[in-house]
Computed example of a mutant assay.
Amino acid sequence: MFDRLKHRVVQAPMAGTSTPELAMAVCKAGGLGFVALGALDARNAAKAIGAVRQGTDQPFGVNLFCHAPARRDGAREAAWIDRLRPEFGRFGAEPPDRLSEIYPGFRGNDAMLSVLLAERPAIVGCHFGLPGPDQIAALKGAGCRLWATATSLAEGQAIKDAGFDAIVAQGYEAGGHRGIFDPDGPDARLDHLQLTRLLLPLGLPIVAAGAIMDRAAARAARDAGAAAVQCGTAFLRAPDAATPPAHRAALSGGRTVMTRAISGRAARCLVNDFTVIDDAEAADYPVAYDLGKALHAAAMARGHAGYGAFWAGTGAAASVERPAADTVLAISP
């Protein structure tokens, strides 16, 4: 699986900022590109996969969200709307009266499964948990290699027991959404080197992820036993990425925090107006994200970018504006 790669650098599937063009560029450079499907419906997922296929004959991966359905709580959602009402008021706007579950998970998503079985991407990655047994069997039967994100040994064991082919060891320093299976469960907050060493005895290839920004960090991960490294923040300034200008500019500040305020689920974001909001009573994921996106839109309509979901890892300040291919070469261990 990894022997076919010229460079053992995996481009993280970042919903909203990674693009088919970014995946193509990484693949052409000898790394492994990924297409993020978690925020797409089946029709647009097929289009994204098709776009990569037209641009490269190299193997690539796709990534899915496997979270449980949101726990709808009308009172809690109304309270969260009221909590953010003053933030909307800063821009002369009103929050929505009701919230929607904007990102359905892959579990039970027959339309998305049909797309994957038809397209047969080389790798199907999973975040927030695992698909159902029938989905796993179908994907394996179609010849797809299966990866899943782990933040603990228990999650790694579950991934192995489900018959997966590799584990992405997501350190606490990684940008974007924490892949923890149970968002309300305990989190040891291990960095990627600690987690890689912890998962190695399971016997599956480990892909280390979390603030890997240069060759020294990649070599340290490989020395710790990782088969490859996965990088997201390192690619955010690439011209092929869909990173908004305000997000790109904020990377140089480098300060990040973990917050649930934006989406309802823990995610590492560059410090901004949203990250200082107390997230203790946030609505469940992805319902809270519906409100977060509405607030960002209201702020942007008045020229204020401080409520963006500017996901980034702790190495954000070390990101470099350059073609994705150059980043692959700069990081390759």
Rank of each mutant, 00 (worst) to 15 (best):
G225C: 13
I212A: 09
P131W: 10
A93S: 14
D41T: 06
A39E: 10
P69G: 02
G175K: 00
P323F: 00
F235K: 00
V124P: 01
I212H: 01
A79P: 05
R76P: 08
E155T: 07
E87S: 05
A267I: 04
L202Y: 03
A267D: 07
R219V: 09
H7C: 08
D110K: 14
R215L: 03
S152Y: 03
A226P: 08
A325R: 07
G31Q: 06
A122S: 13
G303C: 10
V35T: 09
L84N: 11
A70C: 11
A15H: 11
E119F: 03
T256M: 08
R322C: 07
G50E: 11
A317V: 05
E21H: 12
A29N: 10
T149A: 02
S263F: 13
A312H: 00
G16F: 04
N44Q: 12
W147A: 02
D97K: 14
R302P: 10
G143F: 01
A208W: 00
T151V: 15
R107N: 14
T243M: 06
L117G: 12
D273N: 15
M213K: 00
V320A: 12
D182E: 14
A325K: 01
A312T: 07
G108W: 06
F91I: 04
P244V: 03
D184N: 13
L37I: 15
R265P: 12
G313W: 02
F181Q: 06
A297W: 08
F60S: 04
T327S: 01
L117I: 00
A23V: 14
A249V: 10
Q11H: 06
M258Q: 15
L195H: 12
A261R: 10
G89W: 08
